Amino acid sequence: MDKDIVSRLYNGAEFRYRRVNVVKMSAEALGLKVGVTANSITRYETGVRTPTAYEVVVMAHTLGIPITDLTEKVARDPRAFLALLNLEKLRFVRDGEAPITGYESDGTD
C-alpha cells in the first residue's frame, strides 16, 4: 500500500493516546509486538516516520482497535480495502489471535 493509504489508516496521536491512556502500554512493549524498536514507535506516533500497512494492522490489533475501524477508513477504495483484509489475514495466521471486529456476539447468532 502506498503512503497515502497508510495515512488514512494511521493517526499517530490517536494510536499514542490509546497506547498510553487506554491500554497503558509502553512504546517498548508495543514495539516488541510489532517487531520494531520503541524509538520506531515514537517516530510513528510523532509523524517522523510512516509505519507500513502491516505494522498499522498489528498495532491496531495490539491496542484493541477493531479491524472494522480501519476498514471503514478505506471502504471506498477497493484495492486498499482488499489489501487491508489480506494484511489482517496474514496477522491472524502469524499470531493466531482472532481479529477484533468491534461486534461482540450476544450468543444468539
Rank of each mutant, 00 (worst) to 15 (best):
F15Y: 11
A13D: 13
I41P: 05
F15H: 08
K24D: 15
T52Q: 06
L85K: 02
R79A: 05
N39Y: 04
T62N: 11
K89G: 10
T50K: 07
M25C: 10
E88P: 07
R49T: 15
T62C: 11
A53W: 01
S7Q: 09
A83S: 13
K73S: 06
G47M: 13
S7T: 12
A53R: 02
V20I: 11
I5H: 00
G96H: 04
E55Y: 04
D77L: 12
S105D: 15
D95C: 15
A53Y: 01
V22M: 08
N11W: 01
R91W: 09
V57I: 04
R94N: 13
D109T: 12
D95Q: 14
G12Q: 06
R76Q: 02
T50A: 12
K3Q: 10
R79H: 05
L87T: 04
L9R: 01
K89W: 07
G64K: 00
G102W: 05
I65D: 01
T71N: 02
T68G: 08
Y103M: 05
L82F: 07
P51F: 10
L82Y: 06
E14D: 15
L32R: 14
A13G: 12
V36P: 05
Y54P: 04
E104R: 00
L63D: 02
S40L: 12
A75D: 08
T108C: 12
T62A: 15
L9Y: 01
K33T: 12
A75E: 09
G107D: 09
I65V: 10
Y17D: 07
I100E: 08
N11V: 00
I65K: 00
D95K: 13
N21A: 15
T46F: 00
R16F: 09
L82H: 08
G102D: 10
S40K: 14
T52S: 12
L63P: 06
E14V: 14
K89A: 13
V6R: 03
N11I: 01
D106F: 11
L82S: 08
I67P: 00
P51R: 13
T52D: 08
V22A: 07
S26C: 04
S26F: 05
A60F: 00
K89L: 12
